[in-house]
Write a protein that binds this DNA or RNA. Structure first.
Length: 488
RNA sequence: GGCGACGUCGCCAAGUGGUAAGGCGAGGGUCUGCAAAACCCUUAUCGUGGGUUCGAUUCCCACCGUCGCCUCCA
């Protein structure tokens, strides 16, 4: 079965056929960089990271574009988020954008999220946005209001609402906010706004000095790098309306071409409130955990596994208990990986135990079948857990296993767990420095001494060594073929 | 009020028109000097009520509950 993707546009799974064979052009709405990213962002971008990784693993040449919003994202109060932060911290707006863009990349790097190929910023694409607005005006899908602002004319575009399945007539016009008088219709959205004197983020335009609306950046930038029509558009479900809806409308109106062919939207991350009821984590509610804080408590692989243990379209509830369960599951998988890598050092040449290759192949097929079904990462993980049980059984048995087979197992973990899911590290980071090498040597020395003690049935001495090492965070495992250790 | 989604073992979570993966936890074993780890066994009839069907957890309707969006949010 070839890859199927749940297309939000049609509310069903569809076979994935890219516009150009072997190539995938993909755009994902990025963050507004006015604060540190929280674990909700981690969910969204880890989910798309795995999408991109799996597409590449499947042989596609992926061009992945993810924007950074650094202008135009207006608050209810009419204030720009970036400007607000700049005022609060007495900084320049671009200083804020730069600070948090770096913070965002640092977080994503730490989470093992592969960087997008292009990370365009809204502020760096003002001409492209102006050009698209001019096109919309020329085609009669936008108008200049009495106040001089430019709005998209929703009534001129009957398809408006097709993504979020909302009919303009159904909306309670201006029920939540006073309708801006200069709009023809309350649902019209801003393409360009004239800047008030105190608004520092400002650019020249045919309509005067001002700044672009929030939605137009994604339309302009995706078009610039991916073309009028591209394959996949991603983002968080919470942006389906109005943001994504506006993107589709203005892009298709301006380009007279289909915008994104497949829409993939990720479920939100929630956090229990004081009564245990899950509520959405968001910056404005102030109930968020930053990725930096989460990474102080958990390895990035554990955070990823937690995120991937639910399907990307479903919401997940963030809690320490859930993270703890994820950590234990991860320990099991990684324990097997470590065992495999240990065995690799002593495995005899040859293909003894070659029948196990069937088990490995089966796991791989199971994994691919799951991922081909709309990137079902939980199913993929189940394949890894099944494999792990088999691997443990094999390597803990007295059966001789040749190097070729052990290598095949290791390779499978590297591909599926490492390359695709990003939860199996390449090498133990702790081994990557000279001081760590020295430490390993010292521990081995103690293990040798302990082995002597055990041989002489001096268990008191043997246990003393083990206990002291445990106290230092080094756990020992006595195996038939020797003692191995790990740092917790 | 409108739109969207969800409700599967104690917890988390896949999935299928023909009686349900996986993880965590719990109980019982095996192995071990002890431990650690691992492995084995046990642990669900799928929110409620109808309907369609030979047969539904899976399709349809209603209801209850929860979440998201409709206003900035990944």
């Amino acid at each position: 079965m070839a890859l199927q993707i749940y297309n939000v546009l049609h509310r069903e799974k569809e076979p994935f056929v890219p516009l150009h064979e072997g190539r995938v052009n993909m755009y994902v709405c990025g963050p507004t960089v006015y604060d540190h990213a929280h674990v909700g962002h981690a969910k969204t971008y880890v989910a798309f990271d795995v999408v991109v990784r799996y597409l590449r693993y499947s042989g596609y040449d992926v061009l992945y574009v993810q924007n950074l919003t650094d202008v135009g994202h207006i608050l209810d109060s009419g204030e720009d988020r970036i400007l607000k932060k700049a005022r609060q911290t007495q900084s320049l707006p671009m200083q804020i954008a730069e600070t948090y863009a770096r913070s965002y990349f640092a977080d994503m790097d730490a989470l093992g999220v592969v960087r997008p190929d292009i990370s365009p910023r809204a502020s760096g694409h003002i001409p492209e946005q102006i050009e698209m607005i001019e096109t919309l005006l020329a085609k009669g899908h936008a108008y200049i209001s009495d106040d001089g602002n430019v709005y998209f004319d929703v009534r001129s575009w009957p398809e408006y609402g097709k993504l979020s399945n909302r009919r303009v007539e159904e909306q309670e016009a201006g029920s939540r906010e006073s309708v801006r008088e200069d709009k023809r219709n309350p649902e019209d959205f801003a393409l360009w706004k004239l800047a008030e004197p105190e608004h520092i983020l400002r650019w020249d335009s045919p309509w005067g000095v001002g700044y672009p609306g929030w939605h137009i950046e994604c339309s302009a930038m995706s078009r610039k790098y991916l073309g009028d029509t591209f394959d996949i558009h991603g983002g968080g479900v919470d942006n389906i309306f109005p943001h994504n809806e506006c993107e589709v409308a203005q892009s298709e109106a301006a380009n007279e071409a289909t915008f994104a062919r497949y829409w993939m939207l990720v479920g939100s991350l929630t956090v229990p409130d004081e009564f245990g009821v899950p509520v959405k984590m968001s910056k404005s509610l102030g109930n968020f955990y930053t990725i930096k804080d989460a990474l102080k408590l958990h390895r990035p692989e554990v955070l990823r596994l937690f995120i991937l243990s639910g399907h990307y379209r479903n919401p997940i509830v963030f809690s320490e208990d859930a993270l703890d369960a994820a950590r234990k599951g991860w320990d099991r998988i990684y324990g097997a990986v470590r065992l495999v890598r240990t065995k690799l050092q002593s495995a005899p040449e040859g293909d003894a135990g070659g029948a196990f290759r069937d088990v490995v192949d089966k796991a791989k097929q199971q994994f691919i079948a799951a991922m081909d079904d709309d990137f079902n990462a939980p199913g993929g993980l189940a394949a890894l857990y099944d494999l792990t049980r088999e691997v443990n059984t094999l390597l803990n048995s007295s059966e001789t296993v040749g190097r070729g087979v052990v290598e095949a197992i290791d390779q499978t973990y590297r591909e599926l767990g490492g390359t695709v899911l990003g939860i199996v590290p390449e090498e133990e980071a702790a081994m990557a420095s000279t001081s760590a090498e020295r430490e390993a040597g010292l521990i081995q020395l103690l293990l040798d001494l302990r082995a002597d003690a055990r041989a002489q049935k001096d268990f008191a001495r043997a246990d003393q060594i083990r206990q002291q090492l445990t106290g230092l965070g080094v756990t020992l495992e006595d195996r038939p073929d020797g003692t191995i250790w790990r740092v917790d």
